[in-house]
């Protein structure tokens, strides 16, 4: 950028004083919103990958004696069903782990009546008639239910997509707020220093020369604010990663961002500062454009 001498004395402006704080706060919020958006996108992908092409067959509680026989019969029928590529009865211990967040570690000791579950994978191209399959399974083991994950996966996908969109929209709104704040600050600075700006203009300064005076000043302030805002935001994301896993109880994917996502997140304050500096340049040039 330009030389050491600052022709326009912007440092003492009251409006400038709050700029680092404002930019810092907005970058902090934008960092969290962006991270939330990326996390939801990742979580959605994980859920889709985990659940697409899977079914869970639930055999209702029955006599201990019949139980194993029924499960095997249902599993066998499933294995012979066209499109089914994998069938695995889920052991009681695994079911207990799934129920642990609600019923505690001693769930098996409680001897609660629990349904049997069978994990089923189907080929991607397979178009299985779930209703017909349910009817056939019910003949082997009355009351058997086929839980098609596609239905709630679709709802979950819709939900994550909406939440993701809201997160990114919030981030955009925050960046727009940053732009509006900077436009106001710049216009205030131009009004306060109109005499100096006019002198520069009249002695032959190009608009870009005057704009750079404001841009350099804003770059210094906004960079400091953005760095602090980003570091605070990153700290909170890290804390969420450390403590989030303990709270989610295995229901949510890990609250963690990959290296690529961290790189994108780190680009956010840089992009915010560039946006702010660009906004300052455009604002100054637009105002100066009204002069001869």
């Amino acid at each position: 950028m330009i030389g050491q001498v600052r022709d326009v004395p912007l440092s003492g402006d009251p409006a400038s004083r709050y700029l680092p704080w404002t930019v810092g706060l907005l970058v902090f919020l934008a960092t969290l919103a962006f991270a939330a958006g990326m996390f939801l996108a990742s979580a959605g992908d994980t859920w889709r990958q985990d659940l697409s092409g899977t079914l869970t067959v639930q055999i209702p509680v029955s006599d201990k004696a019949d139980r194993l026989e029924q499960v095997n019969a249902v599993a066998e029928l499933l294995r012979t069903t066209p499109g089914v590529v994998f069938v695995r009865p889920i052991p009681d211990a695994e079911i207990a782990v799934l129920l642990e967040p609600w019923l505690g570690k001693q769930v098996l000791e409680l001897e609660l009546p629990m349904p049997d579950l069978i994990d089923v994978s189907v080929a991607r191209a397979a178009d299985i008639d779930i209703a017909a399959l349910s009817a056939r399974l019910a003949q082997v083991a009355p009351g058997t239910v086929v839980d098609d994950h596609a239905i709630w996966l679709r709802r979950l996908t819709e939900f994550t997509l909406i939440a993701e969109t809201i997160s990114f929209a919030v981030m955009i709104v925050i960046l727009i707020s940053a732009v509006a704040t900077v436009v106001f600050t710049t216009r205030t600075g131009l009004a306060i220093h109109s005499d100096v700006v006019e002198v520069l203009h009249l002695i032959g300064a190009q608009d870009s020369y005057v704009a750079r005076q404001f841009q350099n000043h804003t770059l210094r302030l906004a960079s400091a604010g953005a760095a602090v805002g980003f570091l605070l935001g990153a700290g909170i994301i890290w804390l969420a990663h450390v403590y989030g896993g303990k709270l989610s109880g295995g229901l949510l994917p890990e609250l963690a961002l990959g290296p690529g996502q961290w790189a994108l997140l780190a680009a956010l304050p840089v992009a915010a500062v560039l946006l702010v500096v660009l906004t300052v340049g455009i604002t100054v040039k637009r105002v100066l454009g009204k002069m001869m």
Partner: peptide, 11 residues
């Protein structure tokens, strides 16, 4: 000095 230097700097 800096006041007088302005026209040179802007040029």
């Amino acid at each position: 000095l800096d006041n007088v230097a302005l026209p040179l700097r802007v040029a």
